[in-house]
Amino acid sequence: MTKDEFDRMVHEHQGLIWKICRSFSSNEEDQKDLFQEILYRLWVGKDSFSGDSKITTWMYRVGLNRAIDITRKKRIKKTSLNDMQIPSEPQSPDYDLEALYLAINKLPPLDRAIIILYLDQLSYKEIGEIMGLSEKNVSVKLVRIKRKLKEIYLRLTEMVRS
């Protein structure tokens, strides 16, 4: 892959990387740092992309592996919901999305990875390929993760209302 091809690919699929960044860090500075880190890893590993799978599958793998490793190194803070910076204005157009990202941020790293892939409408087979899990395992885990995410989201939004 030439540099021009790489730049074009990143430009086209950067939304995917930003979604990972927002799901794995809650402040803008950290998100930018993580974006740079993922970009660097994609750049370093660009020749390892064989073309056997979709380019997005490769990008998700590299992005999620990097995000999980950075989260590990920063040590996951056990913040309670009360300590979280929750969106204060329910009328704001980004309110729902911000609350959803905050809720995703509260999930364990591997659960975050699976739910991002699910929300990005990847099939169970594709999620399994990216994560290294069987389709059946993905579907079982998704039931649990969705329930947990819903609970956190509801608690967050109820806290704002009350």
């Binding site: 950067q14 939304g15 999305l97 929300l119």
Partner: peptide, 18 residues
């Protein structure tokens, strides 16, 4: 949740675009 996630593509803001 899916709907909220899907809606974000239309309103990407900084730093989400380069």
């Amino acid at each position: 949740i899916e709907q909220i996630w899907e809606d974000q593509s239309g309103k990407e803001k900084k730093p989400e675009t380069m």
